[in-house]
Nucleic acid binder design. Sequence first.
DNA 1: GCCAACGTTGGC
DNA 2: GCCAACGTTGGC
Length: 164
Amino acid sequence: MRYWLMKTEPSAFSLADLKGRPGRTAPWDGVRSYQARNLMRDEMRAGDRVLFYHSSVLPPAVVGTAKVVREAYPDHTAWDPDNEHFDPRSTPENPVWVMVDIQFESEFPVPVTLPELRSIPQLKDMVLLRKGSRLSVQPVTPREFASILQHAQRLAQQARQGPR
DNA sequence: GCCAACGTTGGC
DNA sequence: GCCAACGTTGGC
């Protein structure tokens, strides 16, 4: 099983949106980067786990987790001229872009913010934290995934204990 | 709103 | 094939 981090601007699609979908499942459409597409198409498998990351908000943060429930298939939004991600190079006969389906798994009671991620020594090599990193679908090591879950748990526990 | 970093485009 | 110009991403 592999681990991933997927970025989204919550104003466009948030973890709450995913949770609210039928079956708590939604297609991850609109990816228009070859690098991200190749990862989804060639590497991502059903059952893989995903860190759900909110970008372009203050603070940016990992807000929960999801699971890949359907492997890559053609992204039909690329064929729709009215869609903001329309790409005339892609056709039903020859699809250029793919998407996967992901299912809501968990929402962290307290998000793990970007500054917090930077403070965790085990994450020093994480793709997300590299300078200029903007890949919207990126691999995460099992160790990194575990560290982030552990940190989220610790934050949740502190919150339950309340302010000192 | 600014701007650094990155990917893509297109002239040559 | 090079590379400058451009558009986009995303943190701040």
